[in-house]
Design a protein around this nucleic acid. Structure first.
Lengths: 340, 340
DNA sequence: CGTAATCGCTAAATCATTTTAGTTTAAAAT
DNA sequence: ATTTTAAACTAAAATGATTTAGCGATTACG
């Protein structure tokens, strides 16, 4: 068997000090004034025998793991997994790997996950935080870990953040419905304290108030089977016969909503207009196609990872900490046939 | 600042040897005959000060990282991300973390990923392998790494495997179409050498041959923008006017197919019946709903992770290697309205 | 001429843990 | 009374890298 070579073997074989080999391998040859001749000799040999430094040993010594922790609500949600994919790709190109987990919006689970990640010496964090994580995340930041939050922010946490203006986006969406002549517009949302959900509600609320229309709100609790969500929406729609439009605050609520509407045999948009939040293939292909607020997934990913890489690269080196950035990206209202 | 405590600090403070503390913390107290009194004293103190062993140091010493590498074709594909989520959850419950990447079915990228994972001392591998990875995976297995393949197998690679009988599933699906009276059935697939894609074709082929019907095959190359795929399908459908049904070999080909059909203004199933492979919310909700072959995603995940955990737990300990398991799960043909 | 700087390199400490190979003490066996 | 055995612990090696401090020789400078 080919026993894994160590830097010691390399050094011995070349009759050089371990130190020299280490410097060369870490690109510090110039800085440490190692002769070009030796550099070449070492590099050549290392390449020949295919030596790769033991990353565990290195990590142990330096505390660096080149691992980024990614915590999203649900990796099986198209919104989050698109973002995860983009982030993973960019991280990979920069020599970082991603450890991921779904938080399921569970505060305790997420606290535990952060603990585990810290134990594993994860170097940076990308988090779509559930509520109640303020202290834990402030801890991370105080301990000088690069942290980028996205999708929803936390009251009292100063950090880098990438998101959208949920309130404004929702406001414009609802306004569009109103301008199309809808008067009784329902709002199906989660009973969640997360900032983005609150903001989506505020957007709805503002538009409805502005036009002095009645509000119809259905809050659905997060931890439910899809079937149950469908049932609740059916119940809501049956009780509020006066509705002529419904806005769903998330993509999967809208999916359940469509199932409900199918079961009720309602015709969209004749009986009921529909608007969603976050785009899906389904919304484009559904007949009629579904109007929705679309987040710039690609740009969100790019901003998130670039913020994090930035912090990672300038970590602790300079004393001048850059101020935290708060990046708010534009959404687009994709008007389709469900609101004609 | 609270400096991270080390096992040395613990030992010093309690006037005990580091060894004793280590044994106790690793549950070897009984085996190493440490007195109950000391065990309790150490455990109590460790708990009090919240000491957590440095996992990098431990990993360095033992070579164990408790990390599983997960390589799937595309983490943003609903099929793979559902599986990823289930696997992540089970792994987490068993003290393992997941490092993931998308292979994009790129042989070179995947080879590189395996290299990186090895460098990082990943302890087990779950892989949906692109073609051309036979040697690399055999290497892993020869080096005694637990490896579970799924979704597609590799010629000449003996390993644990979880999958479905793609040929049979596709055969039954196409047979269903034939029995419904369709005579000119197209098959839209990838120009891929992966076993599961080959098998899906074989299933189509067998059914068509059996009934002596004509074949209409469109191969689409994997690395394409969704828009291009749509265009190619449109072109295919326009040239083959005689088609009365089309089978799509993957879920995303079917999604693109639906877009194509929408653009062409065809009516499903009147002008053209449709069948897909792998289920999506979209297929259930689309009007008409789409008939498809559904894989048991949950069971696949369960089998995959349980095979892997099994190998990890019995790693190297016993000399009696269990024979490799080849688990083939049943699919179900979900008959919906696109094939009425 | 004496001191300082530079060059090119290396010895050894260090990181936190696991694990091997003992050691010490007291009780049990002979 | 001596040897064995067992219990309860410990000293120190080992893991593979990084990094600090410094060494000897040559060159430069005032």
């Amino acid at each position: 068997m080919k026993k894994k070579l160590s830097i010691i073997d390399i050094a011995k074989h070349l009759n050089v000090s371990i130190t020299a080999v280490s410097f060369i391998l870490n690109g510090k040859a110039k800085e440490k004034r190692i002769s070009d001749e030796l550099v070449e000799r070492v590099l050549k040999f290392v390449d020949e025998v295919g030596y790769k430094p033991n990353l565990l040993a290195r990590g142990f010594r330096t505390g660096k793991t080149n691992i980024i922790g990614l915590l999203v609500e649900d990796i099986s949600n198209p919104f989050f997994c698109s973002i995860a994919k983009n982030i993973e790709e960019a991280a990979y190109r920069n020599g970082y790997k991603i450890l991921y987990s779904s938080t399921d919006n569970d505060t305790e689970k997420t606290k535990e996950l952060i603990r585990v990640y810290r134990d594993r010496c994860v170097e940076g964090y990308i988090i779509a935080p559930p509520p109640g994580l303020e202290d834990d995340i402030n801890d991370l930041i105080k301990s000088d870990f690069p942290v980028v939050l996205f999708d929803r922010s936390l009251e009292g946490v100063k950090s880098d953040y990438v998101g959208i203006d949920s309130a404004k986006s929702m406001y414009e969406g609802v306004k569009h419905l109103i301008e199309k002549g809808h008067k009784n517009i329902g709002f199906v949302t989660l009973d969640s304290l997360q900032s983005q959900m609150q903001d989506r509600f505020l957007g709805y609320d503002r538009a409805i108030q502005e036009y002095k229309l009645p509000e119809f709100i259905k809050e659905i609790s997060f931890h439910q089977s899809p079937e149950n969500i469908v049932k609740q929406i059916i119940y809501f729609l049956q009780r509020k016969k006066e509705l002529d439009a419904v806005v769903f605050a998330t993509n999967y609520l809208a999916v359940s909503g469509l199932k409900a509407i199918t079961e009720l045999g309602l015709s969209v948009p004749k009986d009921l207009a529909i608007m969603a939040f976050d785009d899906l293939d389904l919304f484009e292909l559904y007949a009629p196609s579904i109007t929705t607020v679309s987040q710039p997934v690609k740009r969100i990913s790019e901003e998130v990872i670039s913020l994090l890489l930035d912090r990672l690269n300038n970590a602790s080196g300079g004393k001048k900490k850059k101020p935290f950035q708060n990046i708010v990206l534009e959404t687009s209202l994709i008007i389709r046939n469900s609101t004609k």
